[in-house]
Simulated scan of single mutants.
Amino acid sequence: MLKKTLIAASLLSTSMLSSSPVLASDTIEVTDQNYAHAETARNYRNWVALGANQQITHMRNLPPRGNKAPTVQMNDDTLYSVVVAQAIDGRVQFDLPKTEVYSAVQVVTEGGHGQHYVVGAGRYDLPVETDYVFLIYRTGMEKGLDVARQTQDLYQDDSFKFDTYTIQNYGYDKVEEWTARLTEETQGEVFEYTFPRTSNEITDRHQWNLENANGWGGSSPEAGVANKYTNSVMLDGGKCLTTTFDDPKSKYFTSVTAYDNTRYLIEGVTNVNSHTWSKNADGTVTVSFNCGEQAVNNIDTKGQDFSFTMRYYGVSQPVMDGKISPEMTVK
């Protein structure tokens, strides 16, 4: 029988997500070498607090704003459902039903790697490199909230081995300090994610740490399947700014989402995506920031300084090749 957990925004209190459990004196020190594992453990821990190690846990609304969110830089286009489970003989199995809307599952290892990203109906039996996995179900909002919620109810969780994950013995206040410091390091530059799929694919440890701090749980770009993400620099929320770019032609959709300086969603701010955006006469797209209600595809950040993240769901080859870069043309 499908087990469902309704997550209300009121449950995602700052105190619940930031308070550390009682830890032994041999708390694991956070280092360059283990930061990605520590940040991953923090995210596992936040979702375990919401029941994701007992059953599939559905977030029935778009993510809360600010650090009430259980994960940094959550998207604002899909509903989330999450599972924290033990791998069985080094594999994880699950089904994705046939749905009316975008439906995908990402398998994130204890090292923070999105080892697999699958889209569409099917039975999946996938190898994983760690003992435990974090599954992110993303459910599209293109047909509205009711259809998205009905789709969430189709996800089955009877193939998972629950209730065995142990919260890792990090000092989570220290993990948050590392995350804040690494996030700040990238605010003065355009930041592009690579998200290596496995530990063997890491070529630059510091880059990998920066990616985990800025957008934990992102996917490795794969044309027509998985997603590509890029962040702009921090921008002045008191100015009217625009960016114009060729249609990215993502297989599923493209979104533009604003975040505060800690990479959390901003209260009262909505995103723009290709399901509803208006195009220019020449087929290009202009997105406006703080330019007034009449401006094309306007995102009002309420006067708050911000960066924006481009998400290409089912990224196209021109975006993969760097031929379309909206974050580089803001003026």
Score class of each variant (00 low, 15 high):
L11S: 08
Y80Q: 13
N212Q: 14
H206R: 08
D260P: 12
V108C: 03
I266G: 08
Y117A: 14
T40K: 01
I28V: 08
L11Y: 15
Q317I: 09
T198C: 10
G292S: 11
F94Q: 07
P248L: 13
G237R: 05
D32R: 06
Y80N: 02
F94G: 00
V272R: 10
D260Q: 04
W178Y: 07
V175M: 08
Y259E: 02
Y44R: 12
L265W: 06
Y132V: 11
T27E: 04
W178A: 04
N212H: 14
I7V: 12
Y165E: 04
L50V: 00
A9I: 05
D157E: 02
G171D: 13
L12D: 01
D300T: 00
N209H: 06
K143Q: 09
F160Q: 02
D204I: 11
P64C: 05
V319D: 04
V256Y: 10
T243E: 03
S307N: 15
W216G: 01
D163C: 14
W47E: 09
Q86R: 10
V285R: 03
R197F: 00
G188E: 07
D153C: 02
A281L: 02
Y312D: 06
R42I: 03
N53I: 00
M16H: 14
D146K: 12
T242P: 06
G283S: 12
V101W: 13
I7Y: 11
R181A: 05
L96C: 00
S307G: 08
S159N: 04
Y165I: 04
G140I: 00
K98M: 12
T329Y: 09
D76H: 05
G51I: 04
F308N: 05
S18E: 06
E110T: 01
N214Y: 05
Q115Y: 05
Q152P: 03
K143G: 15
S13W: 10
A41V: 05
S15T: 06
A295I: 13
A180H: 01
N200S: 12
K331M: 11
A9D: 15
T179Q: 07
S103M: 11
L210V: 12
A9Y: 06
V296K: 05
R205Q: 10
E222S: 12
N231K: 12
T262C: 08
G171S: 15
D95M: 10
N67T: 07
D131A: 13
Q317L: 06
D153F: 07
V225E: 14
T244M: 07
K3M: 09
E267K: 07
Q55M: 00
A295L: 03
D163L: 09
T151Q: 02
N273R: 07
C291L: 10
T109L: 04
F134H: 00
T301P: 07
